[in-house]
């Protein structure tokens, strides 16, 4: 009985459901609480806009918005990748943002139609076990991964949205057939498949695999390294050097557009961009804001020449992966 009483008390204390007033802006955040929880709390404090955050995976939150349609509670969608905005754009569910929001931003973070705006970026890299793959043995191009000597040492995550976004980019850069051929060749050498990026970095550190095709910041977040794992970028302009952009959008018809836009503006401000770059190791959206000292600047790396529009729809990439038996 004592136990039941204790549980009841704890439960009552726990049931402090958040009641919110009319001005509370609701964010569906596909970006994890670990990444943006504190940031959004700060946004609310500094802008004076009350915020309510609902976390989830970005694809699932987008599906939820599609299903909820005009009954959705979301005023803002904070997406892990801008690729996820397209189904909402198609349905006319995203509001046009003020043009001046994009001023001073890196063009890669700007949507020409102003339906969304990029807030930060993550570079696709090879996380490499420094000891077993010395610098001269690392592939110079993403294409090299199709060679069995590399592919058999590789880990990848075809179910992961970042992987799918990169395949989407490859379709734009190489064409459908070439991308399919390359994927088939890599797959034939039996890379290790993981459901997401984080365990890949761990597997590289443990020596289970020698290389993992991931986003750059997992290495920093995991605090694994001490030099045991390094992020490797390909030759300048290679299709492996793709920047994935996280972004935010306001829902069309939201009665709290003003508050929602104020949050977006705050996220893009120089001071906040600086703090994001330093605390989360991501690439800032604003020009002139330095990256974290541990993160390689984008310029010398040389990104693949890619129009952000090519990253806007994952459906063809997913269909391709399904056809190849990777999904």
């Amino acid at each position: 009985m004592r136990a039941i009483r204790l549980m009841l008390l704890l439960s009552l204390a726990a049931c402090t459901t958040l009641f919110s007033d009319e001005s509370t802006v609701t964010i569906y955040s596909g970006r994890g609480e670990a990444l943006v929880g504190e940031l959004l709390a700060r946004a609310s404090r500094e802008t004076g806009v009350p915020l309510r955050v609902q976390y989830g995976s970005t694809p699932e939150l987008v599906t939820r918005m599609v299903v909820e349609a005009d009954q959705t509670q979301a005023d803002l969608l904070f997406a892990q990748e801008i690729t996820h905005f397209q189904p909402l754009v198609r349905r006319g569910m995203l509001a046009r943002l003020p043009d001046d929001l994009s001023e001073g931003l890196d063009p890669r973070f700007i949507d020409q139609a102003h339906h969304w705006v990029g807030t930060s970026g993550r570079l696709r890299v090879l996380a490499v076990n420094a000891e077993s793959v010395p610098p001269d043995a690392r592939p110079r191009s993403l294409r090299d991964l199709a060679q069995p000597e590399y592919a058999s040492k590789l880990a990848w995550a075809p179910q992961n949205a970042a992987f799918q976004a990169h395949v989407s980019a490859l379709r734009a850069l190489w064409g459908h057939d070439e991308t399919a051929r390359w994927l088939r060749q890599v797959h034939a050498s039996g890379p290790r498949t993981f459901p997401k990026n984080a365990p890949i970095v761990q597997a590289v550190a443990d020596g289970v695999v020698q290389m993992g095709w991931v986003n750059h910041y997992y290495l920093h977040q995991s605090r694994i390294s001490n030099g045991a794992v390094v992020n490797h970028s390909f030759a300048e302009g290679d299709a492996g050097n793709v920047l994935l952009v996280a972004g935010i959008a306001v829902r069309e018809g939201s009665p709290r557009v003003e508050g929602a836009t104020r949050i977006v503006r705050w996220l893009l401000s120089e001071a906040v961009q600086e703090s994001v770059a330093q605390s989360s190791w991501e690439y800032p959206a604003r020009l002139g804001v330095p990256t974290h000292p541990d993160v390689a600047p984008l310029d010398p790396i040389g990104l693949a020449d890619l129009d952000p529009d090519h990253l806007s729809d994952l459906a063809p990439a997913r269909a391709m992966l399904r056809e190849l038996g990777l999904l």
Partner: peptide, 18 residues
């Protein structure tokens, strides 16, 4: 407004904050 321990494990694991 619920945030549980299982969510915390999943969220941090996802972001490699082991």
């Amino acid at each position: 407004g619920l945030s549980t321990l299982a969510f915390r494990v999943f969220d941090r694991y996802n972001e490699a904050m082991f």
